[in-house]
């Protein structure tokens, strides 16, 4: 199912410079696999509106789109490539058993506010109109705020965090 994954970009993570982040292009679309991954993988966060799914491998976070993937917090490039090999195997195994799996097309439940808070710059600048970042996180979850209202997130170098939050809240 997923044989080719071509890494197109590797650089240090912005929040944790001792870890790396990367982007990769997939050899073919895995769009139809995403609901199966959502059904099987523990802790996966699926948003059919994008569509994309975020999964974890220990401390690394992967977001899979139909033809692309991103990974953050990998130890180094060897580690990241090893995680990609793991992912390929997961997808291969799941696709082989697809007749036994009931795909889950539903959007994952809203994440914990702390998880949202961790993705924010943490400046407590108030530019969004909230008293601090934690308050902004709660409002985001409640649908009373928008990701783009966080000015540091938009203007600073927080590409993955912004992308991850957008993926969560796109409807």
């Amino acid at each position: 199912m997923l044989e080719r994954v071509d890494i197109t970009y590797i650089s240090p993570c912005l929040a944790e410079p001792d870890k790396i982040r990367l982007k990769a292009r997939l050899g073919k679309s895995i769009e139809e696999v995403l609901p199966y991954l959502n059904a099987v993988m523990e802790g996966a966060s699926f948003n059919p509106a994008v569509p994309c799914i975020t999964i974890r491998r220990d401390f690394r976070v992967l977001t899979l789109y139909p033809e692309e993937l991103t990974m953050i917090k990998a130890e180094n490039s060897t580690d990241a490539m090893q995680v990609i090999e793991w992912l390929k195997k997961q997808i291969r195994d799941i696709w082989e058993r697809k007749d036994e799996i009931t795909p889950d097309y539903t959007r994952s439940e809203k994440p914990h506010p702390l998880m949202i808070y961790k993705q924010l710059p943490g400046t407590n600048c108030g530019a969004c109109g909230e008293t601090n970042c934690m308050a902004f996180a709660f409002k985001l979850l409640g649908g009373e705020q928008e990701v783009d209202n966080c000015r540091p997130l938009k203007e600073g170098d927080y590409l993955e965090s912004r992308e991850m939050l957008n993926n969560l809240f796109v409807s």
């Binding site: 890494i7 197109t8 970009y9 590797i10 650089s11 490039s77 490539m81």
Partner: peptide, 10 residues
């Protein structure tokens, strides 16, 4: 940070 370096790494 270029493609070739990533290919070599791979």
């Amino acid at each position: 940070a270029y493609q070739r370096a990533i290919q070599a790494e791979q």
